[in-house]
């Protein structure tokens, strides 16, 4: 079996072996969204206005729940250092890993967001724009949080540091996505902004795995 095939199979089996990691972000998202009307007001007009932004931020935070675990278990068990003996460049393995993570954890989470949209009475056309921005933006976000996770592997315990370190870099993605949502709600053209968002994601998904690879290599070399 090729390395790529083995990677995919293993990631899929890991999802099945750890259902908690799969459902927890969704649970978190719905829970946070149900707190919004309690904290604000049950007025559906008001909720509809801020709903899409709330869902965006809640999804972002839900994504970060699992981010720290991306490499940590494999690093501690010593599986990560075996990656180096596969006949593939490290950044390619990182891309594979991140793609699997995106496909198996992030996409299912995005598919739950329409439910959150209904809870906050977000209009349908805004909801569609929201789904598209999430799909376009999450590859970049996954790459950034992976870098945070890889950089903090050398810390003694797992924690939120990787998220804190990376969150400021999310600003352009959030701004672009919010721009799309504003335009979608007043009915103007969202395509140019979506193109920018997609470009950012593509750039991040091609360049950041290199940095993640260097960070992983550093941590493998630095541990004895």
């Amino acid at each position: 079996m090729s390395v790529e095939h083995r990677f995919l199979v293993r990631e899929l089996k890991l999802v099945l072996a750890r259902p908690g990691d799969f459902f927890k972000p969704m649970w978190f998202l719905i829970l946070v969204i149900s707190m919004v009307p309690l904290a604000l007001s049950p007025d559906s007009k008001l909720l509809g206005e801020i709903g899409s932004a709330m869902i965006w931020v809640a999804t972002l935070l839900a994504l970060l729940l699992n981010a720290d675990q991306l490499f940590r278990d494999d690093f501690v068990d010593g599986v990560l250092e075996q990656w180096l003996f596969f006949n593939r460049p490290l950044f390619w393995l990182v891309i594979l890993k991140l793609f699997c993570h995106w496909l198996f954890y992030v996409v299912p989470l995005i598919l739950v967001t329409p439910l959150a949209g209904m809870m906050l009475s977000v209009p349908n056309d805004v909801m569609i724009a929201l789904l598209v921005t999430l799909l376009l933006a999450t590859p970049a976000l996954t790459c950034f949080s992976a870098l945070g996770a890889a950089l903090t592997l050398g810390t003694a315990r797992s924690g939120i540091l990787g998220v804190l370190v990376m969150l400021p870099l999310f600003a352009p993605v959030i701004i672009l996505a919010a721009g799309v949502l504003t335009r979608a709600s007043d009915g103007s053209d969202i395509l140019p902004l979506l193109a920018l968002l997609g470009a950012f994601s593509i750039a991040a998904a091609t360049l950041l795995p290199l940095a993640v690879g260097v960070a992983l290599r550093l941590n493998i070399g630095g541990s004895s």
């Binding site: 870098l147 950089l151 903090t152 370190v165 990376m166 400021p168 870099l169 950041l208 940095a211 550093l218």
Partner: peptide, 29 residues
């Protein structure tokens, strides 16, 4: 926040060599 992240990252990693290089990656990104 970026500066704060760098300071936090460095203080969290015990091995100074590793901490330096991890910070360098973060600075470049």
């Amino acid at each position: 926040f970026l500066y704060l992240g760098l300071i936090g990252l460095r203080s969290a990693i015990k091995n100074p060599d590793l901490a330096g290089k991890a910070c360098a990656i973060l600075v470049l990104v």
